[in-house]
């Protein structure tokens, strides 16, 4: 969610129940300016909040030249002092998925331990494998996963140049009301993973500069998104049922859009039972 328009954009996603109080908003406004200067970001986004047993993590995201690749995540407890999150690597993700679970504790140095007893291939000897993960890495992995799996942009909001640079589309005027009611017009903001081969009829309407990302309507399982019109029917609001807490908004016919995650940082693995 763009930091410059944080005040009124938070109103659009408030239908999910979580907001920031006035103290946090004012603190963010000040600290984002400082952060942008210190880290030399092109723009700063308020990414969201992860609820913990004690306190909350506030997450901000700085974007560089390339909107998709040049991302940096930072976290804070008081909306004022920001700490850089390490980039999530594959080995880190594996360790976190094995060891960590449940609520976040609110202490970045907290260590999750997981003991697994494995049998060696050559004999009956048993080996204890201990995985230790710091909560800071878990936070980095969670933020990365949420960005990978459920970050959303409307179609046309970003363009990819011939050199592969992804940037904000300056002439994006927003989806129309009827377009905003369809999941086909919302894209995953990540490198395409399963860009479906389209038939030649469908392909006619697509532009390689705009349609370089996966479409939400191709997500599995079907129905992992809830699309509603809120704020007296004027704003299109998308909620992910896979990561409960992710809310995306777009005001049709205007370029305003954004997403925020306010939740406990756990994936809803029970989704198939719940639909």
């Amino acid at each position: 969610m763009e930091s410059n328009s944080l005040f009124y954009s938070l109103e659009f996603v408030a239908g999910s129940g979580d907001t920031l109080n006035i103290e946090q908003r004012t603190a963010l406004q000040t600290s984002f300016v400082i952060m942008k200067k210190n880290y030399k970001f092109n723009r700063v986004l308020f990414w969201g909040k992860i609820r913990c047993l004690n306190g909350d993590y506030f997450i901000a995201q700085g974007r560089g030249e390339d909107e998709m690749k040049d991302k940096m995540n930072l976290y804070s407890f008081n909306c004022m002092d920001w700490f850089l999150l390490p980039p999530a690597t594959d080995s880190m993700m594996e360790e976190v998925s094995r060891a960590a679970g449940g609520f976040f504790t609110g202490d970045p140095s907290f260590v999750y331990e997981h003991v697994e007893i494995r049998q060696r291939a050559d004999g009956d000897e048993e080996e204890e494998v201990v995985t230790k993960v710091k909560e800071e890495s878990r936070l980095a992995v969670t933020v990365h996963q949420i960005d990978e799996e459920v970050s959303v942009v409307p179609r046309g909001a970003f363009v990819r140049s011939l050199h592969g640079l992804v940037q904000v589309n300056r002439s994006f005027g927003g989806l129309s009301h009827s377009e905003a009611a369809k999941l086909d017009n919302f894209l995953h903001f990540r490198k395409p993973k399963n860009l479906k081969k389209k038939s030649i009829m469908e392909f006619g309407d697509l532009t390689p500069a705009l349609d370089f990302m996966d479409v939400l309507s191709d997500d599995v399982p079907k129905g992992s998104w809830s699309l509603q019109f809120e704020s007296a029917g004027t704003t299109c609001v998308l909620r992910s049922l896979l990561w409960l807490g992710l809310t995306f908004y777009h005001v049709p016919m205007t370029p305003q859009h954004g997403y925020v995650y306010i939740g406990d940082g756990t994936k809803n693995l029970n989704l198939p039972f719940m639909l």
Partner: peptide
């Protein structure tokens, strides 16, 4: 409620 960080947004609350 807003102090507590919950709510439906000021306008929605009013409605």
């Amino acid at each position: 409620l807003e102090q507590a960080g919950v709510g439906l947004g000021r306008m929605e609350m009013q409605r």
